[in-house]
């Protein structure tokens, strides 16, 4: 599903590479934690998957497509197959829950009939039934993140990227968020989550890829956050 082959990314005006000859394979339906300290290259990894950045060398395949051969014109179509969740939720403050989720479908030209059918389903999936008409500022942080997840998942992407989705949320609420991510993963969606949250990684017992200074220092199935003892 995601295939990195010897990928190196150096940002302009920086001598140290953000990613240094990385090779990773993520299969369909996997749940992978991307861990490592700040600046270790986690966000760069996610940006490369979305083709927001181009690698300096190496090949990236996402959902069976070679990104180096994907024209700019087709990048939006790639992104329709990838859902994204961020630490800061990125909801539209002037739209309610339903409208925020529906927005993701409206802007890719889905018919209104389809939107009316799937949006309530996905709002229920993330556990926000009955709150469809709340505005974002009437929701708790955890609930806002659920809205963001509903928006990321509403188009049934093949891959869900989550960049520290529990970063702004207290530990108790985080568990609920992880349950939703797990539920999404069980539908067959590949989930790739960058995180600092040791407790969550340890409790989930999923594959862990650890980055340090742009290099993969550990790739462990059913791993934990710290070194395995």
């Amino acid at each position: 599903m995601i295939h990195f082959d010897n990928v190196t990314k150096v940002y302009v005006n920086q001598n140290r590479p953000a990613l240094d000859h990385i090779s990773v394979d993520v299969d369909k339906g996997e749940f992978v934690f991307l861990v490592g300290p700040s600046g270790s290259g986690k966000s760069t990894f996610l940006r490369l998957v979305l083709k927001e950045e181009r690698p300096n060398s190496g090949a990236i395949h996402v959902a069976g497509k070679d990104l180096s051969k994907l024209s700019n014109f087709k990048v939006p179509h790639l992104r329709r197959r990838i859902g994204c969740v961020f630490q800061d939720f990125r909801l539209l403050p002037n739209k309610n829950v339903y409208e925020n989720v529906a927005f993701a479908l409206e802007v890719i030209g889905k018919p209104r009939r389809f939107i009316r059918k799937v949006v309530p389903e996905v709002i229920e999936l993330v556990g926000l039934e009955g709150k469809a008409h709340r505005m974002p500022d009437e929701l708790s942080g955890g609930e806002q993140q659920r809205v963001a997840m509903a928006r990321a998942f509403v188009n049934r992407p093949m891959i869900l990227l989550a960049d520290e989705p529990t970063g702004n949320i207290d530990p108790a609420t985080s568990i609920g968020i992880m349950k939703v991510l797990d539920r999404i993963n069980r539908t067959g969606t590949t989930v790739l989550m960058a995180t600092h949250d040791a407790a969550i990684v340890d409790s989930m017992r999923k594959r862990v890829v650890e980055l340090e200074d742009g290099k993969i220092v550990r790739d462990q199935s059913r791993g934990v956050y710290g070194q395995a003892y």
Binding site: L78, R80, I82, R90, F103, V107, I108
Partner: peptide
């Protein structure tokens, strides 16, 4: 910019944006 950022993210085409 918030709206267009999300539109980019969810794969809206350039024409739509």
């Amino acid at each position: 910019r918030r709206e267009t950022g999300i539109m980019r993210l969810v794969g809206a085409s350039n024409v739509y944006i």
